[in-house]
Nucleic acid binder design. Structure first.
Lengths: 153, 153
DNA sequence: CCATATTAGTTGTGGAACGCAACCTATAAA
DNA sequence: TTTATAGGTTGCGTTCCACAACTAATATGG
């Protein structure tokens, strides 16, 4: 356990607030889910998600500003703009999958559709879990929060 | 790739909207991070996070309604109420860790504090990643979305 | 070449959510 | 029996969001 008098200072060094600033607004995750599923154009997102156009415009702009999506005007049809995931955006897949799996298990009670599968085995990916450095899955009672200064390293 | 004419129907079967309904509002994730770090009382959350009291009251109530936190009045000091993670709440740890790791890697550029370590090795937990059913970590080009009906199983 | 459709937005307006400060109630401690 | 503590609630102003209508630029069909 963190010492109480250090708790506030310590929680301020966490990247979670910054991450939420980038992707924590309403619709951001659903837009990203769409992008992971192949959506790329304004009208596609709008029709698929049913999001208001001004909000969609704002969210796409913010995700582009944060480098999560790239805005790519279509060179052949200059009306069209493709929004595509950057590496930074693609790196959010574990977050998305973890949240979706949690919803499957604890809210809807059934696997979501579409299913993310391993291309080789064509079987669904494993449940996301926290692992030790050696790859061993960890239970909650095997976990502990420590100050970075106290890392054995 | 999902067939375009099926995309909307298919995305509607995803648990992500339901999950976001439960934990997608502003402050919810930060309250949970606090709970994972040992915060339990109203005044602790308020002082640590700097959240407005009415909003905190609302969020704690919603998380309790969703079964993510349990409201436990203190039997010895009847002024106090402890908000503790349920199993459902604890199951959100992979989501939290994945998002924090993403922020470490792509926003702040350094590991957050406090660090979540394996109690035995006292080393930080591994980066969260998507794995095949056999435990093999998967790259993005090894992944594919398919309709549940098309699962080999 | 002109009329129409498509794509990607913007604008205006009303309602919901949020942030801040002040206040309140029940209980415990001095 | 006064004072402090814990956990809220209320009122009010600001910001965010939803819905519909409108616009600009480009492409397409006759």
């Amino acid at each position: 356990m963190i010492r109480p008098d250090h708790r506030k200072a310590v929680l301020a060094e966490c990247a979670l607030p910054a991450a939420l600033e980038a992707v924590g607004e309403r619709w951001s995750f659903l837009i990203l889910r769409g992008a992971f599923n192949g959506l790329a154009h304004f009208e596609e997102f709008q029709a698929t998600l049913g999001i208001a156009r001004n909000i969609l415009s704002n969210r796409l702009g913010r995700l582009v500003e944060h480098g999560i999506l790239a805005r790519e005007p279509d060179p052949v049809d200059r009306r069209k703009v493709a929004y595509r995931l950057t590496d930074k955006g693609r790196a959010l897949l574990p977050v998305l999958i973890a949240l979706r799996q949690w919803g499957d298990r604890w809210i809807s009670g059934m696997p979501s559709n579409p299913v993310l599968v391993d291309r080789l085995s064509r079987r669904p990916v494993a449940p996301m879990d926290v692992r030790a450095a050696d790859g061993r899955p960890l239970e909650l009672n095997e976990l502990e929060w420590i100050d970075r200064a106290d890392l054995s390293s």
